[in-house]
Design a protein around this nucleic acid. Structure first.
Lengths: 312, 312
DNA sequence: AAGAGAGGCTAAGTCATATTTATGGTCCGC
DNA sequence: GCGGACCATAAATATGACTTAGCCTCTCTT
């Protein structure tokens, strides 16, 4: 015998283990989803490699030798342990969903709704990371992400949620002061809050070419939702998504400063690696999120319908 | 993920385990005698099958994830246990050599010499079974056998030891009474012991066609060595092998009753399954036995040389 | 008893799968 | 700054397992 310090071929050990446990090549073949001939082949393979007699063949049945029984016992335990470790890892992995998304989306829209997901799927704990920069998926840090864009990320499966829209929003008290907003040449009593490029897009949608001069802008904060918070506090007119801040609008803390809704063709997408199409927890979150987004979209049908979509 | 209750492909687990233990695909490839590309393929395979991230890839190195580390630990233990069980079984198997042979050969020739083998190979315990009928090899009961015949057993490797010879043997006190043995028609004072067919062969070698009449024979015992024992006790003239009973002849307890040596072309052979060519213990016994048989043959050169060989 | 069925073996051809080979990119160390 | 080490990817290859088919032996049934 080869007196090898190497392990014999694992598929052969597997076939042998099943045959030993079930005391039959035919039943082992059934369990392994193969044929008796294959099991016979593997067992013989193993016997040749090890130089051990594992089974005594009788015309109608096979019987383990002493050596075979000893090895089979160990092998069964080893495979069971291996299997258990995978199951455990999968269970643990299945119980925790790690997401990364944009700060505004996460803060303003997703977080308030996460409780509903948790209520429906109490066995999945969500871990949410917020960052303005899209984080790589597939390296083990995150299971999935919500991004905005066109949905064309390579290697990722994308599910569209709702469009990215822009509209001037302000506190009700400032609504009057926002009159004449549509004329960028005209000075306003209140500053414009939010990213100048979004304002530029909105004015282009309005048909006004150059947009407002730089001195119209107040401090631009780190994220959209902070501008919106400033607007709610009455510090100016913010440019932001009427969908993301529907709750604020519905509560009357925020009103449109103008009726025009602009968009740049982009949307929010739920994305996850193609390699994880089979992941149950991702599928569950995706389904819940799609549903929530569809509900959101049904509230925003008129907004989305009348939005002026421009190239960015 | 496939949430499979089946174990993922074992070769992939093996590749992963090595990679995890060595913290490097390249070193794992080296250990497994394959290439890094292969290891990479398998690890990816495993990750896809299980839906788990096992490694975080960095451009220059790979790092285990928490799940990967947990699985690797279990996998290493499982493989080690598996390996240990094979090594143990092989060691145990290697420490015990089970032989089957003919009663006379075993009793008269082999057993007295087994001590020499044991002295040279104290780590191998011999188990000797005696039976007149040849026992099947390769079913786990016996590692090897010593048989007599022509050396043409299918599926078995045969090593020739020494020829099967026949010669009348008797106690020295009966030597005189054996005079005239060569004439089967002449009545003797002492009976003939042993198998009539062997006597028949011997007489044919002598050139005497019909052989002695049945009433010349004493009781024929179950095995040759028992006839010889009877001869030593002075109960008659036995037909037997001068090689197997060389010790008795050398000690003077047995003398040839006639000088003619006959043979039927057969010999004693050491045989073992072709499938076990690699077995170290069988090789060690075979080498020792060949040596002992060669020494025996050198003592019996003149006997073998002058033997008259007939077809049986 | 005799026949059908179950279990296993063997042999040969097919097919799948792992592996190799080659290429490219990234980072680390000299 | 450059060469080497390490890993990823893709396509082609080759090994090896698997299936299929036919056969034998034994057992159970009728």
């Amino acid at each position: 015998m080869v007196r090898s310090d190497k392990l014999p071929p694992l598929p052969s050990i597997r076939a042998f283990e099943a045959a030993a446990r079930l005391e039959s090549f035919a039943r082992a073949a059934q369990e392994l989803g193969t044929t008796a001939a294959s099991v016979s082949y593997h067992v013989r393979q193993l016997e040749q490699q090890t130089g051990l007699h594992l089974f005594v063949r009788h015309p109608h049945k096979v019987v383990l030798t002493a050596a075979g029984a000893a090895i089979a016992r160990e092998a069964t335990a080893a495979f069971a342990a291996l299997h258990a470790s995978f199951v455990k890892a999968q269970d643990r992995d299945e119980a925790r969903l790690s997401l990364t998304t944009l700060p505004t989306f996460g803060t303003s829209w997703l977080t308030p709704r996460l409780g509903l997901f948790r209520a429906r799927h109490p066995d999945i704990a969500i871990e949410l990371e917020l960052s303005a920069e899209p984080q790589a998926l597939g390296d083990g840090r995150f299971d999935a992400a919500i991004r905005h864009g066109l949905g064309d990320w390579r290697g990722l499966r994308s599910v569209r949620l709702f469009p990215v829209l822009f509209m001037p929003l302000c506190a009700p008290a400032l609504k009057a002061a926002a009159a004449g907003l549509e004329d960028p040449g005209k000075a306003l009593d209140v500053p414009l809050l939010g990213r100048p490029d979004w304002w530029g897009l909105w004015y282009r949608a309005l048909g006004v070419a150059p947009g407002p001069p730089p001195d119209r802008f107040g401090t631009s904060l780190a994220a959209e939702h902070m501008d919106i918070a400033a607007a709610i506090a009455g510090h100016g007119i913010a440019i932001g998504s009427p969908i993301l801040f529907r709750d604020e609008i519905a509560a009357g803390r925020l009103v449109p400063a103008h009726d025009l809704v602009a968009g740049d063709g982009r949307a929010f997408w739920f994305v996850y690696p193609v390699a994880r199409l089979q992941s149950a927890k991702i599928a569950r979150f995706r389904d819940w999120l799609s549903e929530a987004a569809a509900a959101e979209l049904s509230h925003a049908r008129d907004l989305a319908g009348r939005a002026v979509i421009l190239d960015p």
